[in-house]
Computed example of a mutant assay.
Amino acid sequence: MTDTTAAQSSQDLQRLDVTHIEGDVYAIDVRGHQLRVDQPLDAGGTDTAPTPTELFAASLATCVAFYAGRYLLLHGLPRTGLSVRTEFAMAADPPARVAAVHVVVTPPSELPEERRAGFLAVASHCTVHT
């Protein structure tokens, strides 16, 4: 296995643990929060949870939503109506991998036009981006 971390002290590292449950189901422990992943029925799983790839796309969408929401909060604007959607496509050729991710940010309808460019700029600076 390859170590993909940059040289950092152990105090800088974030940690999560993944353990096998059964079949294609794995539990993820993140700071005491529990998540699960599985595979769809047509891929041999039991479809009891999202796939790891779906969680990847979800983490991108929620990161963008968080930064966009903080921008709105900072400027005293409502977050009602804020939404983010990710769409992803898998590569047609092996190995299996995400080939493209598309992020659609829908700002609240009350977002003033003069704040739109700043809102979109902040949303694009999510720490989990492509």
Rank of each mutant, 00 (worst) to 15 (best):
A92K: 05
L13I: 04
A121S: 14
C126N: 02
G69R: 02
L13Y: 01
S83Q: 03
G45M: 12
P50H: 08
T53G: 04
E87H: 05
T106G: 00
P112N: 05
V25G: 12
P52W: 14
V98F: 11
D38F: 07
R116W: 08
L41Y: 12
L120V: 04
G81D: 12
L74R: 05
D3M: 12
T86I: 03
F66P: 00
T4P: 11
D12N: 15
Q11N: 12
G118Y: 11
C63Q: 02
A43V: 09
A91T: 06
S124P: 03
G44M: 06
R36K: 10
L35E: 07
R85M: 00
T5G: 07
T4A: 10
L60R: 04
R115T: 02
D29H: 10
T130G: 05
L111Y: 04
T19R: 15
R85H: 03
L16M: 09
E110F: 06
A117Q: 14
T2Y: 11
G32E: 07
L13E: 01
V84T: 03
G81W: 13
G81H: 11
L77A: 03
R85I: 00
Q39W: 06
A68I: 02
H102L: 01
A100N: 08
D17C: 03
A96T: 09
L13R: 09
D24A: 15
T127L: 03
G23Q: 09
T62A: 04
A117K: 12
R31A: 14
M90W: 03
G32L: 06
R116C: 05
R36L: 13
Y71R: 04
V30Q: 11
A7N: 07
E110M: 13
V104P: 00
R116M: 07
R115E: 10
A65W: 00
S59D: 05
